[in-house]
């Protein structure tokens, strides 16, 4: 996972240049097995894609950081409300949503309350995985109490929709000094067992907060044992990995696996190696909403592609 990923800096950078600053939503179309990013689309294109697929469309929200109020975005709750308005205006209502973590900024009950109040306005069933910002309360219990019902361990689980197998993973607990995101042995064993009965033609969607692939280890953007998790999925024709954490769109296709990260609804972060640290990036006010957004994903039966549309709050 590490060396080959790190060596393809040129193509990754090009992907970044092409994608990071462009759109706001990702439309995922799952068709047959190999997830495919249609790229950044305008709303007319998104509508067209949605009409063409007539199958499973779901939404990805990420990194709401409710409670964040620093210069990079003094009102993260406000931009989450804008994202929800955008969701509610989608031409095709998604079947459900996933949220790839950092719901809150500091794991305060009031922040989770605010997030729930706003996100519930989508009237979508939301499948959450936690970010590291969701486990900051002293007892690390608020996330699990609210979102962890029926999950295993720190909150991992799987479910099926339209023949697609979805797996929500937790890679933000028990982090080790000097390390990256961490799944841990219990979760890895569970994952191996969870997918072993599935036929190889079952499309798989893995979602977790921190990228499962090594994006930029100097900033901790990767998962220590992510490659181990992916090794259990080698026999599947279509694996899509959806992450957040890095507050920018990034995509990579490697064999049968498509990796994609979504924008935050709260604040942008710099592209790897373009700033002294990965901290919140202050951009001119009129650019902020072009760097925040939502993602939707459409799965089309009997096709090999997932269509991913990243839609910014503002183009």
């Amino acid at each position: 996972m590490s060396e080959s990923d790190r060596d393809d800096g040129v193509s990754r950078r090009r992907v970044l240049e092409c994608m990071t600053w462009a759109g706001t939503g990702v439309l995922w179309t799952i068709s047959g097995g190999v997830p495919h990013a249609l790229g950044i689309m305008g709303e007319a294109q998104a509508q067209q894609a949605a009409q063409q697929t007539k199958s499973l469309t779901f939404l990805q929200l990420s990194d709401s950081h409710v409670g964040f109020d620093k210069p990079a975005n003094p009102n993260a709750l406000g931009t989450l409300e804008e994202a929800v308005a955008k969701v509610n205006a989608l031409p095709q209502k998604p079947a459900f949503a996933i949220h790839t973590g950092d719901i809150s900024h500091l794991s305060l009950e009031s922040q989770f309350d605010d997030a729930d109040r706003v996100i519930s306005q989508t009237r979508l069933d939301v499948h959450y995985v936690p970010g590291e910002h969701d486990f900051l309360d002293p007892d690390q219990k608020f996330y699990r109490e609210r979102y962890g019902r029926g999950s295993k361990g720190a909150g991992w689980y799987s479910f099926d929709a339209n023949g697609v197998h979805f797996v929500g993973l937790v890679n933000v607990v028990d982090l080790k000094a000097g390390g990256l995101g961490n799944l841990g042995n219990d979760q890895l064993e569970w994952l191996q067992d969870d997918v072993k009965h599935l036929s190889a033609s079952t499309p798989i969607v893995l979602f977790a907060h921190i990228p499962l692939w090594t994006v930029y280890p100097d900033w901790g953007w990767g998962t220590q044992d992510g490659a181990q998790a992916l090794s259990y999925l080698k026999r599947f024709g279509s694996v899509t990995v959806l992450n957040g954490h890095i507050h920018q769109v990034m995509q990579k296709v490697e064999g049968n696996v498509t990796f994609h990260t979504a924008r935050s609804t709260a604040f942008p972060q710099p592209a790897p190696d373009t700033a002294p640290s990965p901290g919140p990036m202050k951009v001119p006010d009129d650019q902020l909403r072009t760097m925040l957004g939502i993602t939707d994903v459409t799965f089309k039966q009997n096709e090999q592609r997932l269509a991913i549309i990243d839609s910014p709050l503002k183009t």
Binding site: K176, A177, L180
Partner: peptide, 12 residues
């Protein structure tokens, strides 16, 4: 005493 940031463990 070695320590790290438990939110961003690459910080040591």
């Amino acid at each position: 005493y070695k320590y790290f940031c438990y939110i961003h463990p690459h910080m040591v």
